[in-house]
Computed example of a mutant assay.
Amino acid sequence: MAAVYYPEGRGEMRIFDTFEELSTDLAEYVAQLSESSVKERGYFTVALSGGPLVGMLGKLCGAPYNKTVHWTKWYVFWAEERAVAKNHSDSNYRLAKDMFISKVPILHNHVYSINDSMTVEDAAMQYEFTIRQLVKARVLDVSGVNDCPKFDLILLCMGSDGHIASLFPHHPALEQKADWITYITDSSEPPPERITFTLPVINSASNVIILATGEAKARAAHLAIDPVDQEFDAAAVPARLVGPVDGKLVWFTDISAASQLQMNG
């Protein structure tokens, strides 16, 4: 059973004793979001990221979800992707396909990966164009606040430096507001070239999940979630900048990642 907290202005926190409990609750939470989105709009639009999160979706591949989730109504995107070939070991697409997508009946033409034969700049531009076409087709809703696409769910992993998607501390990409998708060529983690959702897109989602596990994430989790003074530079911890303007933020963490949090219920 998770310990649940509501840190002021930072969404909901669920802290688990074990990875098994975390992955079980995560699967149930995503399945519920899928059901409500399909009932309301006829679709479920979800953006994945790299890291261990995709592996934790594995529970969705088994009973009862493999039979009860409306898989043919899912539209799958990537909140970040490394500019490598789809069969490369660093590819987020390959990770998601091998560990999740290939094991459930999501329609092939509902899976939107980047074009790995282009330069990273051109791939980012084409990915944004694809998303704009789906907005026109009304598969994707639009935020009434900033006209960005409104994904039903964006799944993110927080790095030990506090980065989310491929938005790294103090990187100029954090300031990008005009584009939905941007690219970087100087990632602080290999490989250097990546495309990523911008903050306005992330903060336009109906639901955002941030996964943070392990002791190495404890300091970043503290800075991203706990109260800070007005002089605190949030660009130093990009996860701090995640806050859906008309949606819900839920943190899934383990005890180790939550060990430095100032939790008062």
Rank of each mutant, 00 (worst) to 15 (best):
Met118Thr: 00
Met125Thr: 08
His108Gly: 00
Gly55Leu: 05
Ala83Gln: 13
Ser23Met: 08
Leu53Asp: 01
Gly214Glu: 04
Tyr65Arg: 06
His110Lys: 11
Gly58Phe: 01
Glu231Tyr: 12
Gln126Met: 13
Glu189Gly: 07
Ile202Phe: 08
Gly9Val: 10
Leu95Pro: 00
Arg240Val: 06
Ile106Thr: 08
Asp25Lys: 05
Leu134Cys: 03
Asp141Val: 00
Gly247Arg: 12
Arg194Ala: 13
Ala216Lys: 15
Trp180Asp: 12
Lys73Val: 00
Pro172Glu: 07
Leu26Ile: 04
Ile184Glu: 03
Phe100His: 04
Phe129Gln: 13
Pro52Asp: 04
Gln176Met: 14
Val38Tyr: 03
Val142Arg: 12
Arg240Trp: 05
Leu107Met: 12
Lys59Ile: 00
Pro192Ser: 14
Asn264Phe: 05
Pro64Lys: 05
Thr24Lys: 13
Ser102Ile: 05
Gly243Ser: 15
Gln260Pro: 01
Asn66Glu: 05
Pro172Leu: 06
Arg10Gly: 01
Arg82Ile: 06
Tyr93Pro: 01
Glu21Asp: 14
Val84Gln: 07
Val104Asp: 05
Gln230Trp: 06
Gly50Met: 02
Leu33Glu: 06
Leu223His: 13
Glu80Phe: 00
Val76Ala: 14
Lys39Trp: 01
His222Met: 15
Phe168His: 09
Val4Thr: 15
Ala235Met: 12
Leu134Thr: 02
Ile210Val: 15
Ile114His: 12
Ala216Arg: 13
Leu60Cys: 07
His70Phe: 07
Glu128Pro: 09
Asp233Gln: 13
Val120Asp: 04
